[in-house]
């Protein structure tokens, strides 16, 4: 569905709209906290403190749709009220395309993911200040969302341009009756100029890196490369890269069932939490055999998963260039350097 509506809304009216949303939805938005920008639950008390950072937050939209830990045996763990996430970024939305493939695709739909996904409304915003570790431009992305959102925000001057991306977004604007006007050509031109500027900034930031001619071939034929061992030398196996990643989907099911001697007394309960291919035990089978015993094997797996296995089995690139793993890495491993090092020297 292509919806081309773009409105201009004065900041004051946008704020009234958010206030109105609070009556119907649970609203989550970035606030400036001592540790930086963080998603917080919004109430009338902190509504004024909502900010729209020019770059992605440490947390991605994944945290809200596929929580780090959840019970997957009881229906009551599912949301009561629809949730609106404000301020997600283009990279988050792209990552959700990957997660959708995994959890909603195939023969079997994950009912928990599906419920969270359907009950979450995504309001994205442009990235006028992409960070030093952002590299979406190298993977075909851009610092503003073109799809996957319900509403997208581009702030210009005293107002905001609002792109309507879905029927849900459209209904929300109508129902909460926000005072809006169709976006004028002049304002769209300003936005285009802003967006172009952030693209230029990204290009400048990443000018040292090159992933070869075709991203589909970025790791191809490099399984035996010494690059993996070289970069694994500083890896501490902390799994921060996969935990912070907006598109990593792995989890472990653990058992919290109540045992019993009778059929009627046994009650099954399963908990799932994010797991990481970077942890030693991830591929270990009973008896101790483990195909990925070494750090370098596990580091390599992450790249093969994202750039080779997912594209070939699911037709998705499982990296969106958000660069969160670069920020999170204790060993200062930069995914851009790893991918560039694999390419023949220019």
């Amino acid at each position: 569905m292509v919806i081309k509506d773009i409105y201009y809304i004065e900041k004051e009216n946008w704020q009234k709209f958010l206030e109105s949303l609070l009556r119907e939805y649970e609203l989550v938005a970035p606030l400036e906290e001592p540790g930086g920008f963080e998603y917080r639950s919004i109430t009338l008390e902190n509504l004024e403190r909502i900010v729209y950072p020019g770059v992605r937050l440490a947390q991605s939209a994944k945290f809200f749709i596929y929580p780090p830990q959840e019970t997957v045996s009881q229906e009551e763990s599912l949301p009561q009220k629809k949730k609106v996430i404000l301020g997600v970024k283009a990279c988050d939305l792209k990552a959700l395309v990957a997660l959708d493939e995994i959890f909603l695709g195939g023969d079997l739909v994950d009912p928990f993911y599906k419920t969270w996904r359907e009950n979450t409304i995504l309001i994205s915003s442009d990235c006028p200040q992409p960070g030093e570790t952002c590299f979406c431009n190298l993977l075909g992305g851009s610092p503003f969302a073109e799809s996957g959102f319900d509403l997208n925000l581009s702030f210009i001057g005293d107002g905001v341009l609002v792109d309507v991306g879905s029927e849900k977004g459209k209904e929300m604007l109508e129902k909460h009756n926000v005072s809006r006007q169709p976006a004028e050509e002049a304002r769209l031109r300003i936005r285009d100029a802003d967006r172009k500027q952030s693209v230029e900034k990204l290009k400048e930031t990443n000018k040292e890196f090159s992933f070869g001619e075709n991203i589909a071939d970025v790791v191809k034929g490099h399984y035996e490369s010494p690059v993996w061992q070289k970069f694994a030398e500083t890896c501490v196996g902390c799994c921060a890269c996969t935990n912070i990643c907006p598109s990593c989907h792995c989890f472990l099911l653990t058992d919290l069932s109540t045992p019993g001697s009778k059929l009627s007394s046994v009650e099954f309960k399963k908990l799932r939490y994010w797991d990481s291919c970077q942890s030693t035990g991830y591929t270990r089978v009973a008896g101790g055999a483990n195909p990925r015993k070494k750090l370098a094997d596990r580091l390599k797996n992450r790249y093969y998963c994202k750039f080779e296995y997912k594209p070939s089995s699911f037709n998705i690139l499982a990296c969106t260039g958000c660069g969160r793993c670069v920020d999170a890495c204790q060993g200062k491993i930069d995914i851009r350097e790893v991918l560039s090092a694999l390419q023949p020297t220019r």
Binding site: I102, G106, L108, F251, A286, N301, S312
Partner: peptide, 24 residues
Amino acid sequence: MEKNMSCGVGKCGHCALGRFFVCK
């Protein structure tokens, strides 16, 4: 193939064998 399949339905990632999920 013996891998440590956890979810069994191609979601959890544990049994990845190259581009395959052993479970599905």
